[in-house]
Design a protein around this nucleic acid. Structure first.
Lengths: 225, 225
DNA sequence: AGGCGCTTGTGAACCCGTGCACAAATCGCG
DNA sequence: CGCGATTTGTGCACGGGTTCACAAGCGCCT
């Protein structure tokens, strides 16, 4: 499930706080989900909690990390060291959660050789040999949209089977290759939609619950403080 | 719906290519979704295409932009100009899609005054007055996780009603405030899970379809090239 | 040892999103 | 003017995710 990483993060926080066991209720609150959902998720990966007590934090961390394949430190290739790629290369959150940025690539010869965070930018034509040498299976695309499809093809040709795409475009990849897309502007547009919905709501004096039939599902939280 | 921005992006591409009308099939392919789903989405916002012809590109763009509330250029505040915040401040994709980064904030006095992309970093204590002056309703949190909740509280106090959170933690906000969370490391962990699933799959000689019952829903594409 | 309270695991109902398939409608052409 | 090709809009069934509710199990206290 896509919620496992969230549980893992909450568990690490709890372990740091010195907690030894957690109830599903407590962990669910820390991860921002329903407790029944969490129990079902955890049961699906065969993990055993003890009734009347809860889950063993350390054991559960191991279980989830194994399921997520984080027992080995995975090497990722980052393509495109522009504005965003530069930041991603230096983002500490990757290293602290089991990932190692193994290589940086760009199509611009002017950037090749530039050192970023202890790593030299290489030309994209080196992708195949470097990916094989470092056994890279995950690629991150942080290029303009126009270049993204070519980069994706090159990554696939180099043996990459999972791609995280920050470029605002849909990628076409062969079967067996997983693509996740993160579009920063889309996130803001969704928030803009909520803003629009809220303002048109307050404009109407009557208490109709929704101005139209749209429901805007997604990552939503509205927890009372 | 959360797919509207994706349609909008595809439509802008089509408009740039000179197309005047699109069929639902064509637009669905460009956006990477099913055509029936797209038609249903479009019908839900009351937009009229003409049968036998398709949708008018320019008209549909206007319709979606209105629904998304993009007729007005929305001002957003960015808090935290570290590695990631710095990149977000310079990200051209925001400006090109209807958003204006109106102010930059940080808690570190050493960064205050620093010019980034034509804007000076201000101290977070100025948030309330600046937000009111610029009528900011959307805030972006790019701080470490430890500071995120305090920043969120400050944003809410300043009148912000939509928050985009890049910090790896769950935020607690009063009802009526929308939060979207983007966790870069989580995205990689989900890809890692797919990798683990794939490798354990190839390790087994028998052709069982799935090593366990997990299905990892989410942003997934597997389009044959 | 026995009972009680607490927590997990899960069966079942429910709800929503998804996709199929088809009727209605529009344009172009003969 | 009429017919066929094409495309939208939508009713309906299917599947999966979500939630409730409760039985089963475990520890602790007496």
């Amino acid at each position: 499930m896509a919620r496992l990483p969230e549980y893992l993060r909450a568990l690490h926080n709890l372990a740091e706080a010195g907690d030894d066991t957690v109830s599903s209720e407590g962990l669910a609150a820390a991860a921002g989900v329903n407790s029944a959902k969490l129990r079902k998720d955890l049961s699906h990966l065969g993990s055993y909690g003890t009734r009347g007590v809860g889950y063993d934090v350390a054991l559960l961390i191991d279980q989830i990390e194994f399921t997520l394949g984080l027992t080995q430190r995975r090497a990722v290739a980052l393509v495109g060291v522009g504005n965003l790629g530069h930041a991603l290369a230096g983002y500490a959150g990757f290293a602290s959660r089991g990932f190692r940025i193994a290589a940086l690539f760009d199509a611009d010869q002017a950037r090749v050789g530039e050192p970023i965070n202890g790593l030299n930018v290489r030309h994209i034509s080196d992708l195949a040999v470097v990916a094989a040498a470092e056994s890279i299976a995950i690629g991150v695309i942080a290029t303009p949209a126009a270049a993204a499809q070519d980069v994706a093809d090159a990554l696939v040709a180099a043996g990459v089977t999972s791609i995280l795409n920050f470029a605002p475009c849909v990628l076409s990849v062969p079967e067996g290759v997983d693509v996740r897309k993160v579009d920063l502007a889309v996130e803001l547009q969704i928030l803009s939609f909520h803003e629009h919905r809220k303002s048109s709501l307050t404009a109407l004096p009557g208490g109709l619950s929704s101005p139209n039939g749209l429901a805007a599902t997604g990552t939503e939280e509205a927890v009372g403080s």
